[in-house]
């Protein structure tokens, strides 16, 4: 298993770069570009929620940490922050009309990942994303 950790400030630019860094690493490992895009998008959505909600109202941006655990048949990504805990999505998260201008982030994560769940321990909030990787997704 490969484990890699990326850290940055909870700003839109910095967190977008974290997601790009993970995607670049996965491309280097020859993971299929479509799946890499899905993972990059899910991390971007998770990090945007940290920026917009976990640290909203704070005087300065807090920290975000993205850790990936990569096996050839699955990937797990942990997005951590030390801001306001998110209790997890309710069913309303997945109810929106086409005209709604926000609120689709967690829904997108749910569509892209096999499993996702939220945890808070000792003031550290974690969103864990899991995705199975079929053998044919590796371009070796």
């Amino acid at each position: 298993m490969i484990e890699k950790t990326y850290q940055g400030q909870a700003t839109p630019g910095s967190t977008r770069n974290l997601a790009k860094s993970v995607a670049q690493f996965l491309r280097q490992q020859s993971l299929n570009p479509d799946i890499t895009y899905d993972i990059e998008l899910a991390i971007t959505e998770a990090c945007s929620n940290v920026v917009l909600h976990a640290y909203s109202g704070c005087e300065s941006p807090g920290e975000v940490e993205v850790t990936l655990f990569l096996d050839w048949d699955k990937i797990e990504i942990k997005i951590c922050d030390w801001g306001r805990p998110f209790p997890g999505p309710t069913e309303e998260v997945f109810e929106f009309s086409p005209e709604d201008e926000s609120g689709r982030g967690v829904y997108i994560i749910s569509q892209l990942m096999d499993r996702y769940y939220f945890e808070t321990t000792s003031k550290k909030n974690k969103l864990i994303l899991e995705k199975k990787l079929e053998e044919n997704l590796w371009n070796h």
Binding site: E40, L41, T44, E45, S48, P98, E99, D100, E101
Partner: peptide
Amino acid sequence: VFLDSSGIGFLVHLNN
């Protein structure tokens, strides 16, 4: 080359 939910919100905003 990349669109996230904030980008979607922006496009919906323009449309609205």
